[in-house]
């Protein structure tokens, strides 16, 4: 919030970034004399000219479709019948809420997010802790575990789809060699195991992100704090949970927040691995929305889109409030 406050104290300008000289002199708290003097018409014009292409592209190709799309949610909008695009109020929402699949999809979304993020966080944290100590080729090691990121989620879905293949998949082969299973598991044909499989793929993909962010956060903990803890006789576990974790808590909770939103919005692996099947049983909200769009039912897809945005906003508010309250308790 402080960032925004600072900015509003700066120089006035038009909200749209429209033609320039509006960016004029006259700040109550100029950052420096130099800055103030430099605020000329010419400077303003350069600024607008530099900013305009980015703003235009984002406004036209991202915001315009998003905003114009939201009114479709209240219309009967089907690609297969464009003659009747009447305003239908909340009918699209009613159709969604009346569909039993919607509740399966919601449940799957929660399972997908929670069951992915918990192992990602735990394994990522462990890797970050272990990577604090330098060892030969640590840079190479980091580069190697970073590799999955070069691959698209969709392709990762394909890779794991092949590995989880029930007949020729390497995972069944390894499990039976290890004596864990005696007959091949039809991973992607059974809704329960299919959900497990897509989550395994997602955990594999997402651990690195946590490892990188947490490692950076760990390195920000001042040495004196750790020395003080050691002098006071705190053991490793106590140092971790009572010194390190509280110190980096804000980074951790923001990372989790961003990651929840990101995983919630991440249909690629499921799309590539199961396509939401068998029988819609592995759809999450976003894959289901894409399937609805591909069916041509834009009205319903837009309604789902609004539900997604609503859920994300609610979650963010809830999460930020909860982590703020917790902070209050501790201090």
């Amino acid at each position: 919030m402080t960032k925004l406050d600072n900015v509003t104290k700066g120089h006035p300008s038009t909200a749209t970034g429209a033609p320039g000289p509006a960016v004029a002199v006259g700040s109550a708290e100029p950052r420096s004399i130099r800055r103030r003097r430099a605020f000329t018409v010419r400077r303003g014009a350069t600024m607008v000219a530099f900013m305009a292409p980015a703003v235009l592209f984002v406004a036209v190709f991202i915001y315009y479709p998003m905003v114009s799309g939201s009114q479709m949610a209240f219309r009967n909008w089907n690609l297969n019948n464009l003659t009747d695009t009447a305003f239908v109020g909340f009918k699209n929402f009613q159709t969604i809420f009346a569909d039993a699949t919607f509740y399966t999809v919601l449940g799957n979304t929660v399972v997908w997010v929670v069951a992915s993020i918990v192992p990602q966080f735990v394994i990522g944290f462990a890797i970050a802790l272990f990577l604090r100590r330098t060892f030969p080729f640590r840079g190479l090691y980091q580069a190697l575990i970073f590799f999955p990121w070069a691959i698209s989620g969709f392709l990762i879905g394909i890779l794991f789809r092949w590995m989880f293949n029930s007949e020729f998949g390497v995972i069944n082969d390894l499990l039976s060699k290890a004596g864990i299973i005696h007959s091949p598991i039809p991973w992607l044909a059974d809704p329960k195991t299919a959900m497990v499989a897509v989550i395994i793929a997602n955990v594999w993909y997402g651990v690195t992100f946590f490892a990188i962010i947490i490692l950076a956060a760990l390195q920000s903990v001042p040495d004196e704090m750790l020395e003080a803890a050691a002098l006071d006789g705190a053991g490793k576990a106590r140092t971790l949970f009572q010194v390190i974790v509280p110190y980096i808590r804000i980074t951790l909770s923001l990372t989790v927040l961003l990651r929840v939103i990101w995983i919630f919005n991440f249909p690629d692996i499921i799309y590539g691995m199961t396509g939401g099947g068998p029988a819609n049983q592995t759809h999450i909200v976003t894959t289901w929305m894409i399937a609805t769009t591909q069916r041509g039912d834009y009205g319903q897809a837009s309604a789902l889109g609004l539900i997604v945005v609503g859920l994300l906003v609610l979650f963010s508010i809830f999460f930020l409030t909860a982590s703020r309250e917790k902070k209050g308790d501790l201090s």
Binding site: A15, G17, V58, I62, S68, G69, I290, T293, S302
Partner: peptide, 21 residues
Amino acid sequence: GALLMGFLVTQMIPSFIALGP
């Protein structure tokens, strides 16, 4: 601040949400 926010929001809301429009 508003411009930056406008950019960051697009990272929260996926591009495929507006596929139809």
